[in-house]
Design a protein around this nucleic acid. Structure first.
Lengths: 209, 209
DNA sequence: ACCTGAACACCGTTCAAGT
DNA sequence: ACCTGAACACCGTTCAAGT
């Protein structure tokens, strides 16, 4: 039974989900595929390339067209789609952040963000900068969020999450223990801050709260 | 000549600056100190702890009091101080980002950011969220910026930086090739976007363009 | 108290040789 | 074309034993 490139990728994703990024080694992957370590190097030139392919797989679809008509809703939609994609695999945020550290230039939701910025009224170069800024935020927040969740699962965090029933940014009025609340609420706050900033830069009125 | 804990830390910083984070291994550090690898484990329980101490040293002083009177200038001052600290050592941003990934809660410029947010008129919990958002941006941007600079030094990047004489966000009118310009200009743009967002959230007038 | 010597249990990667 | 066998050059960490 010959090993295909996609089999290697599938095996790698399975190890990631079950054991985490730290336990994803070429030797372990080889063993799980019933093959010698060296065999992997016929399909991928090195581990970094394999990680890159994994990151691409995690992010597949996030750059698709947006359904929202408003530019601000479009940005929120893309940001949530990106966050969801990162959270859908163990250590997904960390993997993507590490892999895209320097080649953020490429794919991702970047183009979508830029488009929304232009629709908002920002000149293109500004929209591009805004897109980067947004990406830094989404990646940073999600890496943090995911590593916290993992520590909590192992039982290492002290403070307990409050109001587990708050689910959207609309509940932001609660005002207390926001820091330990639903990560999505925290995420939405940063996102709103950012969108407000874009609106101000574009010289648009605050059409929404 | 006995090895002190601070000697180990100094040696580690020296290797970081000269050879980078990837080449900072316990064995290499031991050799540079004229000692056996095991000796390091008398001073630090493990490598992660050593990296944490290095991150703390890199960030020493960034949480100091701010000189600016305006809250927005204060935020900019803190953000730049943090960025400068990260850039002052090879792979400094990467090291701090990796080490603080999950314990961002602690020190840093966080408290300073929170204070400025409160001064801006944000309720405390919102100011705390805003501080996180800002930290994610600063760390993400600086990691990216520093890794790009390193790739450029090795000669791997295609596009060449334009207008090397632009130095502050005031020059943002140039409009062309902003993406390849002075990283500080890019940084200042994201920062301004963010501060505008805080201002809008706090319900303050745009006192500055 | 502080360090050596020596091991344990791993890594990523290469490459002749096999089929 | 695809993989094995076996090595190369490393890692972080532990721990009895020395001084």
């Amino acid at each position: 039974m010959q090993l295909r490139r996609s089999d290697v990728l599938d095996g790698a994703m399975a190890i990631l989900d079950k054991y985490g990024l730290a336990d994803l080694t070429m030797r372990r992957l080889a063993t799980s595929l019933g093959v010698q370590p060296g065999a992997l190097y016929w399909h991928f030139p090195n581990k970094q390339t394999l990680l890159g392919a994994m990151a691409d797989r995690i992010l597949v679809g996030v750059d698709g067209p947006v359904t929202s008509e408003r530019w601000d809703d479009g940005i929120a939609e893309l940001a949530h789609r990106l966050r969801d994609a990162l959270l859908s695999h163990r250590d997904g945020a960390e993997l993507v952040a590490a892999t895209y550290a320097s080649r953020m230039t490429s794919n991702l939701a970047r183009e979508g963000f830029v488009g929304a910025g232009v629709r908002a009224g920002l000149p293109r170069p500004y929209a591009e900068l805004a897109a980067y800024t947004l990406l830094y935020f989404v990646l940073g927040h999600t890496v943090d969020e995911q590593s916290r969740a993992q520590m909590e699962a192992v039982g290492a965090l002290t403070r307990t999450p409050a109001s587990p029933d708050t689910e959207t940014a609309a509940d932001l009025g609660s005002d207390q223990d926001l820091l330990d609340g639903d990560p999505r609420v925290r995420f939405d706050f940063g996102l709103a801050l950012f969108i407000d900033g874009m609106r101000a830069r574009a010289g648009l009125p605050a059409t929404r709260a």
